[in-house]
Design a protein around this nucleic acid. Structure first.
Length: 440
RNA sequence: CGGGGCGUAGCGCAGCCCGGUAGCGCAUCUGCUUUGGGAGCAGAGGGUCGCAGGUUCGAAUCCUGCCGCCCCGACCA
C-alpha cells in the first residue's frame, strides 16, 4: 500500500478525552474514530489489525473443532422470553421496535438464538458433540462506556457455543476451548492467565476468565507468578484426546489464580511470599459451562443411546477481538507509539523514502516495494513528500514491526537501513539482503 | 445511577469573570527555499462559538432549559 493513496488520518496531538494509552494511540494512529459514546468506526489501519486478530481467533477455533457461522445482530424479543432473560437482562440490552411494533433487540449475546437453531435440527446424540461459533457485533448498553474500544457499547465478539449429551462430554468441549484460548492469546504475543471467575448473567458453575496483566487493567487479580513461565500447548495438540487435554487444563488450573470477585485471601496467603502476584488485568476471554440452563426451558433435547430424551449440556466461550486490539496496545507500546507483535501488525514493513522525487531513492524504493509485495509481504510504502523526521515519527507511531529506510547517503554506498521497531536495532544492508531478511 | 468537568476550525487551546461583529499553535492549500528524527519564509482557505429560548441597542461572553461528551465511584461478556 502506498501511503499517498491510503487513508491514515494521523493526529499529532491526542484528543483530550482519551485517557488511557491504547485509546490515545489508536486515535493518534488513525485506527478508530468515535461516532458516539462507546461506539467506534474502525478506520483502515484499525480494521487491518482487527481482521488479523479475528483470523487468529478463527484459526484456533477451527483447529479445536468449532464450526463458523454467522447470526444476525437483531433478535426477536420472543426468543428471549423463552429463556426468561428478556426481563432479567435489564437496561443493558438495547430494545427496539420495528414498524409493526414488534419487539426486537440488538443482541448482547446469542445463547437463545443458537439454542433455537440447534433444537430445530439436532435430535440425536449421534450429531454431538457440536460447537458452533460466529464473530459478530454485539451491543451492550453499558452504564459507562470508557477507554475507547476497550469498554465500548458496540463491540466485536467471537462467541462459541458447545452442545454435548452429558456433563462429561461438555467438560471435554470446555477443555477444548480452554486450550484453544491459551493458544489464541499466545499467538498474539500475550501472556493470558486463566482465572476462576464469576458467571454473571450467563449462568452456570464452571467458568474461567482469561486475563492479561496490564497496569491499566480494570480487574484486580491474584495469582502465583509461575504462570508466567508456563508453556503454551503446541500447534499439534490433539483436541480429541481427552486425557491429554485434561492434563493441560489441570496444569493450567493447578495454581492459585482468581479475580477479586472470587479471591480467597486465605488460599492466596498460602503461596510463598515471593511467588505471590497481585496485579491488575484485562479480561480478554471468558468461558462458561452452564449445563442445561438454556436447553431445558427452550427444549433443546436429543435422544440418547438408550432412547431417553434429555436436554443438552451447553457451554459458551467468548473473546472480544475489538477489545483485544486495545489490550495488545496496552501490553505493547513505548513513548513513541505502538509496537505491534508481528502476528497482528497491520503491515509487516514500513518502507520510507527519505527523499521523494530523487531518482535514485525513488527507483530503489519502487524495486523494494514490488519485490516485497511480490513475495506476499504487507508493505506500507511512505511515498509522501513529508520530511524525514515526520516519516520516522509516523512509522514509530503506527508501530509496524520493520522499518526500511531508503535515503540518499546510504544508497550511495548501495545500502538501505532496516530497523526493528521493538528493539530499535538498526542495520545497514543491501536491498537484496533486506528483502531476504524480511521474507523470513 | 450518584459525584465532578467540558462543548469555540480536522486536532490542541485562548477569549467568557468585566457583553461591542472570533483568535493562537498544529494540520490543510499556493509559492520559494529546504531535505536522515515532527523545517523556514510569504500568502490563502476553513468556524450556525453544541442546540433552543430569554435579557440587551448589541451575546461565544449574562440567565433558563435541553442535548452531547469525558472523568471518579457503583455496576459490568
Amino acid at each position: 500500500m502506498r501511503l499517498s493513496r491510503y487513508f491514515l488520518p494521523i493526529l499529532r496531538e491526542a484528543p483530550r478525552d482519551a485517557e488511557i494509552v491504547s485509546h490515545r494511540l489508536m486515535l493518534r494512529a488513525g485506527m478508530i474514530r468515535q461516532e458516539a459514546a462507546g461506539i467506534y468506526a474502525f478506520l483502515p489501519l484499525g480494521h487491518r489489525v482487527l481482521t488479523k486478530v479475528c483470523q487468529i481467533v478463527r484459526e484456533e477455533q477451527n483447529r479445536a473443532g468449532a464450526i463458523e457461522m454467522l447470526m444476525p445482530t437483531i433478535q426477536s424479543a420472543d426468543l428471549w422470553r423463552e429463556s426468561g432473560r428478556y426481563d432479567d437482562y435489564g437496561k443493558e440490552m438495547l430494545r427496539i421496535e420495528d414498524r409493526h411494533e414488534r419487539e426486537m433487540l440488538f443482541g448482547p449475546t446469542n445463547e437463545e438464538m443458537i439454542t433455537e437453531i440447534f433444537r430445530a435440527s439436532v435430535k440425536s446424540y449421534k450429531q454431538l458433540p457440536l460447537n458452533l461459533y460466529h464473530i459478530q457485533w454485539k451491543f451492550r448498553d453499558e452504564v459507562r462506556p470508557r477507554f475507547g474500544v476497550y469498554r465500548s457499547r458496540e463491540f466485536l465478539m467471537k462467541d462459541a457455543y458447545s452442545f454435548d449429551l452429558d456433563a462429561e462430554g461438555a467438560r471435554h468441549s470446555y477443555n477444548k476451548m480452554f486450550v484453544a484460548y491459551l493458544r489464541t492469546f499466545a499467538r498474539m504475543g500475550l501472556k493470558a492467565i486463566p482465572m476462576v471467575a464469576d458467571t454473571g448473567p450467563i449462568g452456570g458453575n464452571l467458568s474461567h476468565e482469561f486475563i492479561i496483566l496490564a497496569s491499566t487493567g480494570e480487574s484486580e487479580v491474584f495469582c502465583q507468578n509461575d504462570f508466567l513461565e508456563f508453556d503454551v500447548p503446541a500447534e499439534g495438540v490433539d483436541f480429541d484426546e481427552k486425557t491429554g487435554l485434561q492434563k493441560i487444563v489441570d496444569r493450567w488450573t493447578s495454581l492459585y489464580a482468581a479475580t477479586s470477585e472470587k479471591h480467597d485471601a486465605a488460599a492466596f496467603e498460602k503461596i510463598p511470599e515471593p511467588k505471590r502476584l497481585s496485579a491488575r488485568g484485562i479480561e480478554v476471554g471468558h468461558i462458561f459451562y452452564f449445563g442445561t440452563k438454556y436447553s431445558e426451558p427452550m427444549k433443546a433435547t436429543v435422544s440418547g443411546p438408550n432412547g431417553n430424551v434429555s436436554p443438552v449440556h451447553m457451554g459458551s466461550y467468548g473473546i472480544g477481538p475489538s477489545r483485544l486490539v486495545a489490550a495488545i496496545i496496552e501490553a505493547s507500546h513505548d513513548d513513541k507509539g505502538i509496537v505491534w507483535p508481528e502476528a497482528i501488525a497491520p503491515f509487516k514493513v514500513g518502507l520510507m523514502n527519505l527523499k521523494q522525487g530523487d531518482a535514485a531513492t525513488d527507483a530503489a524504493c519502487e524495486q523494494l516495494y514490488s519485490a516485497l509485495t511480490g513475495k506476499g509481504i504487507d508493505v506500507l510504502y511512505d511515498d509522501t513528500d513529508e520530511r524525514a523526521g515526520a516519516k520516522f515519527a509516523t512509522m514509530d507511531l503506527i508501530g509496524l514491526p520493520w522499518q526500511v529506510t531508503v535515503g540518499p547517503k546510504a544508497l550511495a554506498e548501495g545500502k538501505v537501513e532496516i530497523k526493528r521497531r521493538s528493539g530499535g536495532e538498526r542495520e545497514l544492508v543491501t536491498p537484496e539482503e533486506a528483502i531476504n531478511r524480511l521474507s523470513g
